[in-house]
Nucleic acid binder design. Structure first.
Lengths: 152, 152
DNA sequence: GTAATTTCTAAACCTAACTTTAGGTCAAGG
DNA sequence: CCTTGACCTAAAGTTAGGTTTAGAAATTAC
């Protein structure tokens, strides 16, 4: 009787909409086979893949990024716990980075609340986009008021 | 000569696109007046408003949420530093909450990497949506493998 | 063996936050 | 005065991540 899970069964067990699962297939996140009648059939391992997708989305990954992670799973065999653990460690790094960014932002904000200026010249509060390699455009002079030119 | 800033000048000083500024006006985030020829003219205080918008967006606020914050600024006079500082404290709370959520998520993930299961039954890693009032649908049984039924 | 439920595909629709386009108007410089 | 660049509006297009719809075929339930 192991002829795979129907899309509806998968939807029930993951809580995802059937349409979302089809969409994920279109994005290459899962690769069901088809039965004689042309309907999708899924392995139990796909439950785990979809679980990964849902968690990764909460972490702010885009579907292409998630796909890239999933593509690192071994082909030809059902991924083991160790495979999943290896993949999951990427989460850890991404989360650490995000927490660090937000904490830095918060610390800057603390200084900024004190002066009320919201001036990014002074407070360095505005760092466009999370990452590291984006000092491209140079600082933007927001607020319009230099410290000397403020009127109160 | 204090007849206000043109949209182009505002764009240059904020780094925003002219089209974005027009869009923000349509969303009610700024309210320029028009000169004799029908062109938009902005106050210097609008630089600060746009700065606020840009920062708030980094913090993950939507434009309607940002508008709600801006609407708390006093009408009839140019906001003071103290006004802005008051508004900015909302950021602090939002940031604290987000950092707490991510930290919790990370701690759960740490446990999860150890077992490799990614099972949300076991790891409680999956908490749909940040907030507090969403225990509505009950836990979802992801992964499909109960601890006893695993094959890997 | 039929009725009800699922599933199928393709294409259109949805929200957020903008950008682009098209066709015209305003303003500043020579 | 005339040209060039900045500006105007309205509408359509864009991306991500899906949902909805329509009509047809497969599967399941009785």
């Amino acid at each position: 009787m192991n002829d795979g899970l129907s899309i509806g069964a998968l939807a029930q067990r993951t809580g995802l909409a059937v349409s979302a699962i089809r969409y994920y297939e279109a994005q290459g996140l899962i690769k069901p086979w088809r039965n004689a009648g042309g309907q999708r059939r899924f392995e139990r391992a796909d439950l785990r893949r979809l679980s990964f997708v849902m968690i990764a989305q909460q972490f702010g990954f885009t579907l292409p990024q998630i796909r890239a992670e999933l593509d690192r799973l071994p082909g030809g065999r059902t991924p083991t716990k160790a495979d999943w653990a290896r993949i999951s460690e990427g989460f850890r790094a991404a989360l650490d980075a995000r927490i660090a960014t937000l904490t830095r932002l918060r610390d800057n904000l603390d200084g900024c609340i004190g002066c009320g200026c919201l001036s990014l010249e002074a407070c360095a509060l505005y760092n466009p986009r999370d990452g590291a390699a984006e000092m491209g455009q140079g600082p933007r002079y927001l607020m319009g008021d230099t410290p000397a030119a403020q009127k109160g």
